[in-house]
Computed example of a mutant assay.
Amino acid sequence: MTTLSYTIGVLALQGAFREHLEHLQRAVAAADLAAYSFSLLEVKTPEQLAQCSALVVPGGESTSMSLIAERTGMLEPLREFVASKPAWGTCAGLILLASEIHNARPHQKALGGMDICVARNAFGRQLESFEEACDFSDFAPGVTAFKTVFIRAPVVSAVRKGADFVSVGPKKMHRPNVCSFQEGEKTLTSFDLVVKAECENTAPVEVLHSLPNGLVVAVRQGNKLGTSFHPELADDCSFHHWFVKEFVVGH
């Protein structure tokens, strides 16, 4: 009997990639995945990316991550990868996977893996970071009271439906934390800057979870997953286990 083998990569240009790898290591050791073989890989080069069956794009600083990807020749390979293969973006990774980034920074890039609009730093500064126990069992069986950690987190503000973007979440969103920058003789704020990328994902966008205030913090589009929070900072690998079963083995 042939054992199916999968290589799960974690983008290791910047951010919390080691924590994701540790959680994935625990997740793939679960008894219900014993029929499969898994390799876990830190991804820093196009050659390493080409080995992957699926990719996790971690939290960190989305602008730095995209600039490093561009400088190291990873940006286009990442765009090609997320156009077809399973990918999960957490916090900064969610921002990178989007087709539109609002409250962006100069020279920031998007990958266009999901046809969504994401607002950076929607919860404010790092001092306003928080934790919340969330029940995800309506889409991830058994994942209840999961400790979600939000650190300068983004939110999904709109999703593509047909030819147009449709707003999701509360009508009046908290104005995100903004910064100023110069463009010629003009002083602009990051709130004025929107970064866009072409998106080839034609699957319907599903809102998986909203906080009690209506802010959308988890979405799915086909074999792509985006979460605002940091599941790798919880002492619980159940969300990673669900990702492996649903997006890696399931595809």
Rank of each mutant, 00 (worst) to 15 (best):
S62E: 01
S62V: 11
S62W: 08
S62F: 08
T63I: 11
T63C: 08
S64F: 01
M65L: 13
M65Y: 04
S66D: 04
S66I: 11
S66W: 03
S66A: 06
L67A: 07
L67N: 01
I68W: 04
I68A: 01
I68L: 12
A69N: 10
A69E: 11
A69V: 10
A69Y: 03
A69G: 11
E70C: 05
E70D: 13
E70A: 12
E70W: 01
E70G: 09
E70R: 09
R71M: 11
R71K: 14
R71C: 11
R71Y: 12
T72R: 14
T72K: 14
T72Y: 14
G73V: 04
G73T: 03
G73D: 05
G73E: 00
G73R: 01
M74A: 02
M74S: 00
M74E: 00
M74D: 02
L75G: 03
L75N: 06
E76V: 15
E76Y: 05
E76P: 12
E76Q: 14
P77S: 09
P77Q: 01
P77R: 05
L78H: 08
L78D: 07
L78K: 09
R79Q: 15
R79D: 12
R79I: 15
E80P: 10
E80K: 14
E80H: 15
F81R: 01
F81W: 05
F81L: 02
F81E: 00
F81S: 01
V82Y: 07
V82W: 01
A83R: 12
A83M: 09
S84H: 10
S84A: 11
S84N: 09
S84T: 13
K85Q: 15
K85M: 14
K85P: 14
K85A: 15
P86T: 13
A87D: 15
A87R: 13
W88P: 10
W88T: 15
W88G: 15
W88L: 15
G89A: 12
G89H: 02
G89E: 09
G89S: 08
G89F: 06
T90F: 00
T90H: 07
T90P: 02
T90M: 05
C91L: 07
C91P: 06
C91R: 03
C91E: 04
A92H: 04
G93C: 08
L94K: 08
L94T: 05
L94P: 05
L94Q: 07
I95S: 09
L96C: 09
L96S: 10
L96Y: 07
L97Y: 04
A98L: 10
A98C: 12
A98I: 13
S99F: 09
S99K: 06
E100N: 09
E100G: 04
I101P: 05
H102Y: 04
H102K: 04
H102E: 06
H102L: 03
N103C: 05
N103K: 00
N103T: 02
A104W: 00
A104L: 01
R105W: 00
P106K: 02
